[in-house]
């Protein structure tokens, strides 16, 4: 028995230390890594509580996807853009502190009302064993009692995805590209800042040369004589 308690303290200690690291680290990437460490330790605690599914879900969803995305963003942020380098934001700090307190109170209330008084949940171990394990138990609960919240969450996430796509819609990228193209410079042959090329006058159409299929739905025009040493393209329409 003692060994399990020891392992629990080890995991809990590392989880708390890592959680402290999240707040204390100066570098946001280090914060994210600490958060991963904390999550993994919490997942291990879940395993000790025989909640394997929860543990694995925690690792896949939180550490495997969400924090990866957070890191994705953090890697692109430059240190000097962070608010700490501009004196911080006092209002946000205050609000954050308050929200933290509220969260702490909530968690404390939940623990005090349930566990300490020893009130049993709706799924005692015997009931879990009766349906064949905790995966089955979670499945039953989620898709019967909590069906409506699940559907609502799914809808919310879908809306969020569509919203994100809208915010990052490609037209904006096109606009930015157009700005860049206007200022597009070539160092080799063109004077800087000059729009490089104006299309020359309309060119005559293709010639009746032999056409040879060349693969990939393409044909090659096989020009045989020099008489049409020309500036005539072998294709009709201009692309791009």
């Amino acid at each position: 028995m003692a060994i399990e308690v020891l392992i629990f303290y080890l995991l809990a200690g590392v989880a708390i230390a890592a959680a402290a690291g999240v707040v204390l680290a100066r570098n946001p990437v280090h914060s994210a890594v600490s958060l991963v460490l904390s999550f993994v330790n919490v997942a291990a605690i879940y395993v000790m509580l025989r909640a394997e599914f929860l543990a694995v879900a925690q690792v896949i969803v939180y550490t495997g996807a969400i924090i990866v995305l957070v890191l994705f963003v953090l890697m692109l942020v430059q240190q000097q853009d962070l608010p700490e380098f501009h004196g911080g934001r006092p209002l946000r700090r205050a609000v954050g502190f308050l929200l933290g307190l509220v969260l702490l109170a909530e968690v404390a209330a939940a623990i005090l009302t349930r566990s300490l008084r020893g009130a049993p949940g709706s799924w005692p171990p015997e009931a879990v064993a009766a349906v064949g394990g905790n995966i089955q138990a979670i499945g039953r609960e989620l898709y019967s009692v909590y069906m409506l919240p699940i559907q609502a969450t799914a809808l919310l996430l879908l809306a969020a995805t569509v919203g994100a796509l809208f915010l990052a819609r490609p037209e904006l990228i096109e606009e930015r590209l157009a700005v860049a193209r206007r200022l597009f410079t070539i160092s080799l042959a063109h004077p800087r800042g000059v729009d490089p090329l104006q299309p020359v006058a309309e060119l005559p159409g293709p010639h009746d040369n032999e056409r040879k299929p060349a693969g990939g739905d393409r044909v090659l025009v096989m020009a045989r004589n020099a008489e049409e040493f020309t500036e005539q393209p072998a294709w009709g329409e201009i692309r791009r």
Partner: peptide, 18 residues
């Protein structure tokens, strides 16, 4: 007697074929 192959779309693939 030889032919000069010409592309029809002007992309990387056409230059490869040519």
């Amino acid at each position: 007697d030889f032919a000069v192959p010409l592309g029809t779309h002007g992309d990387v693939y056409d230059r490869y074929l040519v």
